[in-house]
Every structure is written in C-alpha cells, then in structure tokens.
Amino acid sequence: MSEVIVVTSGKGGVGKTTTTANIGTGLALADKKVVLVDADIGLRNLDVVMGLENRIVYDLIDVTEGNCRLKQALIRDKRYDKLFLLPAAQTRDKNAVSPEQMRQLCEELQQDFDFVIIDCPAGIEQGFKNAIAGADRAIIVTTPEVSAVRDADRIIGLLEAAEMHNPKLVVNRIRPQMVKKGDMMDIDDMIDILAIDLLGVVPEDEHIVVSTNRGEPAICNEQSRASQAYRNIVRRILGENVPLMSLELEVGLVDRLKKFFGL
C-alpha cells in the first residue's frame, strides 16, 4: 500500500520544503521506503535542505524526457538507507513537464516506495497543477498570518475542484508567547476558519535554521522542539493517535485531533 502525498501552501516561503524534508526523513526513520520529489522546477531547494546537492547527476525532467532511467535519477540518502530524492531540474521551467507526465512518474514511483512525498512550488499555476496531478492526498502548510491562511483557503478550494478531498493542515512557525499575548492567531482560529483537519503544529524554532545550514533535517536533532512536532506528525501520518504535545496545547487547542481520528 503506497501513498503519494503533496505538500502545498499557495503562499511562498511558509515552510513546504522544510516540512517535506522532515516528514520524509521521519517516515524513513520509521522504516518506510520514501522518495522525496522536488516539483519546484527551476527553483530547486529540497536538495540543499537535505544536504544532497553535490550528488545530483540527473533530475526529474531528465526522467520525463527519457534522458535517463528513473532509477538513475534517484539519489539515495546514505544516512537513512530507505530515503531517496528525485531532484528538480534547475535550468528548466515548469512547462517542461505536464500533469500527465507527473501522474505517470508518481505511478512508477509507487511500485517501489511506501511513500512518495512531493514538494510543491508556491502559487496556483502550472507548477501547482503538476505537483498535485499524481497525488492521492495533500498536506497544506500555513503560518499564523492573514495572507498565508487566505492562500491556504484558496488552495483547499482548488484541491476540492481537482477532486482531492480532505487535505490536512500543518500550522508552521507558531510562537506560543505571541499567541498567549493575543498577538497571533491560535490553532482553533485557523481550523475554524479553514474548516479542515489538523495534522500538526510546528513552533518557530532556531534549530530549523541551523539544520538547514547543515543540510540535516531538524527531525534528527531530538533537542529541538520542531523535531518533536515533526515526529508527532509522522506518527499521525502512519495512523497513530498522538495527542498534541504540551507546546501545541499551549497555543490553545481543543481535541480536534481526537475528532480527526474518530475517537
């Protein structure tokens, strides 16, 4: 049973790539065979966040154009032997690949992997359409800001129109102190407005910057609060019922997750 999950947001810079890298690494640590697909053609980032930028030979467009076999383009992450990356092309643009080609690519990857995680580019144009084409379900990343939540709402509508129902929300960069002071929207506010299920809450965390500098996903650094949040998200993706960590609770959340898991 293999799943294709697209990580998307609408608004740029809210944490799609960071989320993709950490969830993917977490699933691999849980002994799942995972491939991360960078669908941000022309602006590839996932390779750098994963620390795999020096190992790229072929990319996604090389595969769809038949310049190499799929297996040749997959980079195995030596640190976690069940984790692979299919990098985006850097010198091409989004129109170099079509939704149909992406669908075929995802189907082929599904034969070999438990999870295919797609890092979607910002926006709602061709790149977005390509990224969602082969996906079974979606994770929507937002930050607690009006513009990001607004864009998330738009994305939910577009996913619905594409018949992809029940996307799950990750709220990134929450600052509990600001929420406490009433200067940041809390989780309930956002869930209420967007009317979707919550998958997890990731705090603002300096470790994310440090780990991105190093090219090692933050989930590996057990000291970081973001790591704990990502571990919980991974367990929820795997179907476990994980209550919100205290930090998540601090930001004013009732038992939405219980509802989500039907308890």
Partner: peptide, 28 residues
C-alpha cells in the same frame, strides 16, 4: 497586565473572515 483584547489577533481573524467571504464567492 498583558490581558484582554489588546492583542492584534482578533483584528487578524476578523479581516481574514471578511476577505474569505469574497474569495470564496469569486472562486466559483
């Protein structure tokens, strides 16, 4: 004392609610 409605989150929430009414109509 850092309590009460001094925070900006209520403003954010309200603005978001209004903007989404229009967005959702315009989407279809």
């Amino acid at each position: 004392f850092g309590k009460g409605s001094a925070g900006s989150k209520d403003i954010a929430k309200e603005r978001l609610r209004l903007v989404l009414v229009h967005d959702r109509v315009n989407v279809s």
